[in-house]
Amino acid sequence: MSVLGLYVPGTGPLHRIPAGPKLLALLVLGVALIAVADLWVALTVLVVALVLYPVTGLGARRALAVLRVLWPFLLAIGVFQALFVGAWTEGVRLCAQLAALVLLANAITLSTRVAEMLALFERLARPLRRVGADPDRVALVLALTIRSIPMVAAAWTAARDGYRARGLRNRPHLLVVPVIVHLLRMAEATGEALVARGIDEDSESAHR
């Protein structure tokens, strides 16, 4: 698992806007689009969203990839509205709205580093301090998860090889159980290391 995720490195205008304003703009636009519920507004925003990809250096191909995932849903909307409701303009509007919003949201993801997004989450989690949550620990868990994904994947591969080597078949739980036990041990050792390294002091250390 790459730490880059879906991020596309670049220096376009969208890359230069911080994550917070981008998400806020998307939220406002999304609410407005649904509240106005106008065919031409929806189509205009869709065109803007489509043009945004080549203009900001994300590439038209990535826009098409989004649409490829979305097309069965768009088809379902179109067919349902045309056949059962008899309002094909309504169908076009709903399709345009959905495609526009998904395209715009995806553009934000493609132009924002995962680390920047996580930093934003951490800031947004700050008010949770009042209910007893610690933003530092939130950030720590998210970082720990990213570091654990390749370790889990490796444990998974090793267990699958063992499962095949022993000629076991059709008993998937016998494949998963050793992985889980391995992960539980791994978590135990990691917890110990967090305490030993003074990164997370909040632990009952005598309890093993």
Binding site: M1, R137, L140, V141, L142, L144, T145, R147, S148, I149, M151, V152, A153, W156, V179, I180, L183, L184, M186, A187, E188, T190, G191, E192, L194, V195, I199, D200, E201, D202, S203, E204, H207
Partner: peptide, 24 residues
């Protein structure tokens, strides 16, 4: 009460497990 360092590690490792299960 609360969560220990080991609990944080368990949360992270199982979040990673869900991720691995979604992807593999």
């Amino acid at each position: 009460r609360g969560l220990t360092a080991r609990d944080l590690a368990l949360i992270a490792v199982f979040a990673a497990l869900i991720a691995a299960m979604s992807v593999t």
